[in-house]
Design a binder for these strands. Structure first.
Lengths: 348, 348
DNA sequence: GATCGCGCAGCAAGCGCTTTCTGCATCGAC
DNA sequence: GTCGATGCAGAAAGCGCTTGCTGCGCGATC
């Protein structure tokens, strides 16, 4: 029913071995023979059996990309860049590889399960994107998995994620702390003294790092860090909206709101407007990430640009072994402060 | 080195066959034996070899999801919904399936190549999302591929994509024509007579359908369809920005701009503002899709909401055989007009 | 007590490919 | 003319798993 290597071999009047070699192109085959085989492949419309070759060769051409939320452009942009380098169809790489984008939904269990699934598929490489969860047992479990994957020959790269100790994983981490510091420094420089902070989920490394940067800036300026000025939520606009109302309730005299990311910032803007406050005249707003829509907000969002596409591309190349990993296996990728319309000098 | 089924069998003192049956759970195994096997699996930290089992069983647990642009939330949202139903880790389905999100970048060749790659992997199902390219040879090639996939037992579902004739593929299409018609009807109802239209890439079905809906509305209102009022571009904000400037150049008296989608609409808004025009006082703007950020635009965007997540979920269920396909294998999914701040009565 | 049925486990034959090793020409060199 | 390279193709042994079939031991049946 389905065409197999043997069928092609029969048609081309060669042995299966030869067909395999023509298809994999890593062994000398006479031009005439190759020609004949290729023609037979074409005529029979033969498609290689992936599992079979993966089994025989003990390697597969699957590359896993783990993301927290595929519907979020933050991850979409990285995934897209990674995939472009993985050399799926159209990529520069010769061998065609299938990029598998796995949506963990931010759940540690699903992360682990996907890792197992990829291990099961004998993935050629795995790229984990986005912040990790700060939970010792889980971190250990992930580290163990990553070690096992590495042992099995799977290259592991972390993109926008903190390094995993005791692991061979290459890490390209974003300097969230530095970016947040610069952002809050900017606001303080404008004269703000009462800043609200809308943080992400408590247990995420990204959340903590950004918060630390923010606090470092406050401390450096001698501003007391009132815990009531920080609210935790999810990384989405809805959460930004709710958190802003809460912050305003706690302290109506706030002059600036720093959000965990751009989506949250947009939610904050909406809440401020609904509350009759102008941006930035009454309250300044700042985001993080600089996703494409941020520049279209009105006023456009002051934020920290993260080179998502560049980092993803680099991670992809490293995963494919087409670029040298950074020294020590760890590189910190800096963000860039983008000062735009949503931040200004505080009133009064 | 790596643990195999045989190792587990040895440790549990049973035959490999029994281990396999315990793992697949589709054959009676005595409780005590099962217990013993499971313990051995655990102790040896055994991970099934995916390719090997796929080869032996002639099926795999991979499910392909083709998207045009993974960095675009339009596709991200659908992909996310599909995947949730595919029953990856955490899904309701028992068997764990690996969702493979493939980024075609809108390129017909890559689409085809990915389809081949999925065929090669003997994917369990494939979901194609988003508009197709209107190119007869390519459409035929895709149809042929889909037929072949179906023959091989792969379930094929189209989500937000026109039906593929002569194919067993189930199609869930968006009623782009109807949505566009309603949108332009709304603007005409407000009194607009000079509407600019920023269309997507010429060769896409989505582009054509939306444009047809728009034109149908114009025709119904007896408004001449000046071809100079339509500009084609990509489905991104940049394109919306450029196209708007072009439309304004051609006819500064426009009172409304209808965009191919929300991203394009945002670009249009930016261009209008830069040109010193107010929205909607001077020019009304309308988008399409109702992506999450649309409500945060200022003014919030009048658009057509497409039930992306719902359609994706349904497509996912159908792909998994957990929901009956629609009668005739084709269902049209309607959008809903969302009237918001960006559209108003024209000046004068 | 012999027979049948049934529940459970093992045997062994592949699944379709890769790859090592072997073999046969052909060619150049001495 | 002979021998060793060299270049290319084939034979065959798996890769690790699934599954149809066989077989065994037990309680139920006549």
């Amino acid at each position: 029913m389905t065409v197999t290597l043997a069928d092609v071999a029969a048609r081309a009047q060669v042995s299966p071995a030869t067909v395999s070699r023509v298809l994999n192109g890593n062994y000398p085959v006479a031009a005439a023979t190759r020609e004949r085989v290729l023609r037979a492949v074409d005529e029979l419309d033969y498609v290689l059996n992936g599992p079979a070759s993966a089994l025989a060769a003990a390697t597969s051409d699957l590359v896993g990309i783990l993301v927290n939320d595929i519907a979020d452009p933050f991850f979409g942009i990285m995934a897209s860049a990674i995939q472009a380098e993985i050399g799926g169809p159209g990529g520069r790489a010769g061998g065609e590889r299938l990029a598998v984008v796995c949506n963990t939904g931010g759940s540690p269990e699903r992360e682990l399960t996907y890792l197992t699934l990829l291990q099961r598929q004998r993935a050629a490489a795995v790229v984990l994107t986005g912040g990790a969860v700060e939970d010792a047992p889980h971190a250990a479990a992930v580290a163990a998995k990553l070690r096992k994957l590495a042992d099995a020959g799977t290259r592991v790269v972390l993109c926008g994620r903190p390094p995993a100790p005791d692991t061979e994983a290459i890490a390209l981490t974003f300097d969230n702390r530095g970016g947040a510091r610069a952002l809050t420094d900017h606001l303080i420089g404008l004269g703000h003294r009462r800043l609200g902070y809308i943080a992400g989920p408590e247990e995420r490394t990204t959340t903590r790092h950004r918060l630390e940067g923010h606090r470092a800036a406050l401390a450096a300026a001698g501003i007391e860090d009132d815990p009531r000025r920080t609210v935790h939520g999810r990384y989405d606009r809805r959460s930004g909206h709710e958190a802003t109302l809460e912050l305003l309730r706690r302290d109506p005299s706030l002059t600036a709101i720093v959000a965990a990311n751009d989506s949250v910032a947009l939610g904050a803007c909406a809440a401020l407007r609904e509350s009759g406050l102008r941006i930035p005249e009454d309250v300044s707003v700042a985001g993080f990430d600089d996703l494409p829509f941020s520049i279209d907000a009105v006023p456009s969002l002051t934020t920290v640009r993260l080179p998502l596409a560049e980092a993803g591309a680099r991670a992809g190349r490293i995963a494919m072994g087409r670029e040298e990993p950074p020294l020590g296996g760890i590189a910190s990728v800096r963000g860039e402060l983008m000062v735009r319309g949503s931040s200004g000098v505080p009133r009064g």
